[in-house]
């Protein structure tokens, strides 16, 4: 009784939110309704006794896929006026495709035959001695291991392909190389100079010394700041002009 009520409540919310996904004017609201639909589907799985599938549905679809949807939809600036612009021009094409799909569906539904063994399958009780997590594991990883591995491989290829197609290496980005940072020694970066009092840095030729190629890798933006040298001098030069630093 309570299960039946719960089933109808969750199904009603599921259908309602699924309808809102396609009718909602705001794309972000659409995605949020989609998430609500996922939740109610998970609840239906729970009622059917498939607690593992329910949790995996929430983890994979709500926790990962829908987050990415939401990211994309929120960052996109969807211009509805531009979207509606070509409506009349494309309407005949859309209608034709819709009609074709409708007749295809209709032909499938009319030719639908229910196997004689089906009612028997539906009536068979769930085995009580095996949890459904274990049952799914057995089917996926033991009976159909080859197909499972193949689909994994296809997904991997698709992922690599997507990265290859979209990844652009921008050379303007400055990355941190932690190994190189830690290998830096004081001698590589700091020059201690003994200089005459009241001698300008330009006069001594150390105003902006050229980077030493054997010490600094070519890609590093080598900078010997005046400030760095200046700090070393700070102790010696008592009465340096303010403008120098």
């Amino acid at each position: 009784m309570i299960t039946a009520i719960a089933f109808y409540v969750f199904s009603a919310i599921l259908l309602g939110s699924a309808a809102m996904v396609v009718t909602s004017r705001n794309p972000v609201h659409s995605v949020l309704f989609l998430i609500l639909a996922f939740f109610n589907a998970a609840a239906l799985f729970l009622i059917a006794g498939a607690e593992f599938l329910a949790m995996i549905l929430v983890i994979v679809y709500v926790g990962a896929v829908a987050v990415l949807f939401l990211f994309v939809v929120m960052m996109l600036d969807v211009d509805f006026v531009a979207l509606r612009e070509g409506f009349q021009r494309y309407a005949p094409v859309g209608a034709t495709v819709g009609v074709v799909l409708f007749f295809e569906l209709l032909s499938v539904l009319l030719g639908w035959q229910i196997s004689d063994a089906a009612p028997g399958l539906r009536l068979s009780t769930m085995p009580t001695n095996i949890s459904n997590t274990r049952a799914i594991g057995q089917v996926l990883y033991t009976n159909y291991i080859l197909l499972f591995q193949l689909s994994g491989l296809i997904l991997l290829v698709a992922m690599v392909g997507a990265i290859v197609l979209t990844h652009r290496d921008r050379h303007t980005a400055r990355r941190q190389n932690i190994t190189r940072q830690q290998e830096r020694r004081v001698a590589d970066t700091l020059q201690v100079l003994q200089i005459r009092n009241r001698a300008g840095v330009q006069e001594l030729g150390i105003y902006r010394p050229k980077p030493m190629p054997q010490l600094i890798p070519a890609e590093a933006p080598a900078r010997f700041d005046e400030a760095e040298v200046g700090h070393e001098l700070g102790g010696d030069v008592q009465d340096h002009e303010a403008g120098e630093h």
Binding site: E51, F52, M55, I56, V62
Partner: peptide, 16 residues
């Protein structure tokens, strides 16, 4: 039965 999955599911919703 699936307590740890439930916890993982709930914590992955926190981002919403």
């Amino acid at each position: 039965n699936v307590g740890i999955l439930y916890l993982f599911a709930i914590s992955s919703l926190g981002v919403y």
